[in-house]
Amino acid sequence: MSLSEREKERYRRQLGVRSWDQERLKAASVFIAGVGGLGGTSALYLALAGVGRIRIVDRDRVDPSNLNRQVLYGEDSSGCLKVDEAGRRLSEANPHIIIETSSEPIGRESLDRLAAGVSLILDGLDNMEARFALNEYSVRHRVPYLYGAVCGWQGMVGLFHPPVTACLACLLSSEQEAKPEVPVFGCLPGTVGLLQATEALKYLMGLEPALLGKLLIYDGRDMTFDLVDMAKNPACPVCSGAV
C-alpha cells in the first residue's frame, strides 16, 4: 500500500527509524476494545503513527470522573458517547486513516462481528468479563490479544497469541472477583496504554514483539518494571484444546 506525498511528509520523522514499515502499518487493522484510559491513549498514538484502520468499540458515555486520565475527552464531552468523541478526535489527529466506531456491548456473540478481519486485538477494557470474552475470541480465531490493565499504582501489559503462548485464562481465573470501580492515578493508564501501543506497532510491522508470552508489570509508586514469563496451563479451560 503506497504512501501519498502528504503522508510521507507527515511520517517523515518515523520513516527513518530502523525497521520501520509505514506501508505495512497503513495496511493494518486494529480492534480497540474500550476507549478509556488505556484504549484512548493507545488509539491516539496508533492513529498518529498511521495504522490504516482502527476500529474502536465502547458503549460508555463520558463521565466527569474519566477526565483525570482519558486524554481524548474534555469538559464539553460529558454525556457524549465515547466512541463518537474519540472517533472525531482521532480523525482530526490523522485524516489519512480510517476510524470505525461502534457502541455495541462487547460479548461473546457480538465479537464475531465487531472484531472480524482485524490483525490485532488491543484491550482497553475496565472489566474482566469482557476481557475473558476477548480472550476466547483470540483463542478461537488465533488473533493476537494485547492485554493491558491498571489498578492503583500498578499496571501490566502482555501479548497473548495462543496456541503459541498462554492465554489470559492460563494466567487468571474467570471466577476472580473484580472491583466495580478501581482507584487509578492519571498517568498510569497513559503509561500502560503507550506500552501497548508500542507493542502493537511492532507486531503490525512484522517485528518481533518483546512481550509475546510475557507480562510486563509496572509499579508507578516504586518505579519498577518486572518482566515475567507466562507458561501455558495444560488444564486451561479455554486454550488447552487449541492446537
Binding site: G34, G36, G37, L38, G39, D123, G124, L125, D126, N127, M128, R131, G148, A149, V150, C151, Q154, G155, M156, L172, Q176, E177, A178, K179, V182, V184, P189, I217, D226
Partner: peptide, 10 residues
C-alpha cells in the same frame, strides 16, 4: 515470591 493482586481497571 512476588504476590500480584487482581488488576482489572482500564
Amino acid at each position: 515470591v512476588t504476590l500480584q493482586p487482581p488488576v482489572s481497571g482500564g
